[in-house]
Every structure is written in C-alpha cells, then in structure tokens.
Measured scan of single mutants.
Amino acid sequence: MIINNLKLIREKKKISQSELAALLESSRQTINGIEKNKYNPSLQLALKIAYYLNTPLEDIFQWQ
C-alpha cells in the first residue's frame, strides 16, 4: 500500500488542488483521489508532482 503526504506538503506550499492539477495537466478530482488514497498515481504523474512541489518523491509517497 502506498501512503502519501501530498495534502500536507501541498498545503504547506500554499498550493490549491486546482492549481496543482493545472500544473500537472490533470484534474482536481485526480489530486483529491490521490490525497485520499483512493487513487495511486502513475510513475509519470508521481514524478511530475514531486517536480512541481520541489520535493523528493520519497517524501511524498511511501510504501507501507
């Protein structure tokens, strides 16, 4: 199971779900699903999230 700190990191950087979704060329619903652990992002999307949040991938997503 993958757990994530996306919501915590996103809020700390003062970025809304909609703003992050626009940067990622994704939907706000996708970001919401990832944050609620209802959806696991593809590797490509996970890497883009890490890039746009300027945060190491392993700080956002962790195996448990």
Rank of each mutant, 00 (worst) to 15 (best):
I2T: 11
I3G: 06
I3S: 08
I3A: 08
I3M: 13
N4F: 08
N4S: 02
N5K: 07
N5T: 03
L6C: 09
L6Y: 00
L6S: 01
K7I: 09
K7A: 11
K7L: 08
K7D: 03
L8A: 14
L8Y: 12
I9A: 05
R10S: 02
R10E: 03
R10P: 02
K12Q: 14
K13A: 11
K14I: 03
I15Q: 02
I15R: 03
I15T: 02
I15F: 08
S16T: 13
S16C: 06
Q17Y: 06
Q17N: 04
S18W: 11
L20R: 01
L23T: 06
L24Q: 00
E25I: 07
E25P: 14
E25M: 12
S26C: 15
R28K: 14
R28C: 14
R28L: 14
R28G: 08
Q29C: 13
T30N: 05
T30L: 15
I31A: 01
I31E: 01
G33W: 13
I34L: 06
I34C: 04
E35P: 02
K36Y: 07
K36V: 09
K36N: 15
N37K: 07
N37Y: 06
N37S: 10
K38R: 13
K38E: 15
K38D: 11
Y39S: 07
N40F: 13
N40I: 15
N40H: 12
N40A: 15
S42T: 12
S42C: 07
S42W: 03
L43K: 11
L43S: 06
Q44T: 13
A46I: 05
A46W: 03
A46K: 04
A46D: 01
L47F: 09
K48M: 09
I49T: 00
I49P: 00
A50H: 00
A50D: 03
A50Y: 05
A50C: 07
L53R: 00
L53V: 03
N54F: 06
N54M: 10
N54V: 07
N54S: 13
N54W: 05
T55E: 10
T55A: 07
T55N: 03
P56F: 06
E58L: 09
E58C: 11
E58Q: 11
D59N: 09
D59L: 13
D59E: 14
D59Q: 12
I60D: 00
F61L: 02
Q62M: 10
Q62F: 06
W63R: 03
Q64F: 07
